[in-house]
Design a protein around this nucleic acid. Structure first.
Lengths: 181, 181
DNA sequence: GTCTATAATTTGATAGAC
DNA sequence: GTCTATCAAATTATAGAC
């Protein structure tokens, strides 16, 4: 599913990365424009307001994430191994991209966002917990929903706390805890 | 340990609350000033820059938190009960104050902060994990350090995710998981 | 210690030419 | 679709009166 190289897509990609690194208030239209070599006024043609932009970023992030997750787990049957594939995706964002999960980042910034933006971000949370609950249920867990919630909290918290600890140790610890079932 | 009612303290209290709700970039000197009925220029007399302010906020937050924790656990011997006293303090911030932990909030905003500010915030993380590790060790856990790290990640993640889920359910779930030992 | 006034910069957003 | 030019507002921070 290769993303097109049109201006709209380049804006979304750059803005998404900046949002994951610095949060909603931590980047400007001019920052995005300078990074991709256009002027900030051009961004407003594609996204009239910053609120529209953050909603589209969140939607793209969620769609891309679950498309990739579906692709990576397509031929994996073991539920725990499927879960650890999702964990590996979070780990990649943290250790290779050196970014936070967009969902966790915008959860911190939630008071700065419109109700529409909050609702869109909540869809990532809902979809993640539902997906995890299905895997834990297939794995034979009683209380699969609670297990899914705990797993998602550990992932988001592990990414967040790794930022201040200046190491990946917090994420390493919760990854082993999740893998232990 | 009653806090004094001087201007400096009122600035710190108000700024700390705003930082917990909206993050480092989400409040201004004018916001603080308006809230306590002074002018923004007066704040610069007490704290020359926003970086100085956030460092002092973080230091005060950490000192107050561990002073309160020490007081609340003074006559509690059972290590697990001592841990759940800390958990209850986090729960109170989330459900009564309707705020994030300052440490978790500034972890999200870390790229906006000076190295000095990051170092001060990391002290809260270090102190929390060390305190938790002592309790888990006294409780008889092998791998007390890992258990402490996992507990702290769950607490910060639970607060963060409860913000988007628009309920306390994520925190409820991790609280039960922690209590289960 | 707090104020008024203001500097210098950045912000989201718009108008209109091309 | 992208640009130049600009606006109105907000930001951190400083100078100097009181």
């Amino acid at each position: 599913m290769p993303r097109l190289d049109n201006p709209r897509t380049k804006i979304l990609q750059t803005a998404q990365q900046m949002a994951q690194n610095r949060g909603f208030g931590g980047f400007s239209f001019r920052d995005i424009a300078a990074d991709i070599g256009i002027k900030s006024a051009s961004i407003h043609y594609h996204f009239p307001t910053k609120d529209h932009l953050i909603i589209e970023i969140s939607k793209t992030y969620r769609e891309d994430f679950f498309a990739t997750l579906g692709s990576k787990t397509k031929e994996i049957d073991d539920p725990l191994q499927r879960i650890m594939t999702l964990v590996a995706m979070f780990r990649h964002v943290l250790t290779q991209d050196h970014r936070m999960c967009l969902c966790g980042m915008l959860a911190a910034d939630i008071e700065l966002l419109s109700l529409e933006a909050r609702a869109e971000i909540k869809l990532f949370f809902d979809a993640s917990v539902n997906w995890l609950a299905q895997q834990w249920a297939a794995h034979g867990s009683d209380e699969a929903h609670n297990k899914a919630m705990d797993t998602f909290v550990r992932l988001e918290g592990g990414m967040l706390i790794s930022r201040i600890s200046a190491s990946t140790e917090p994420f390493d610890v919760i990854e082993r805890a999740i893998a232990a079932g």
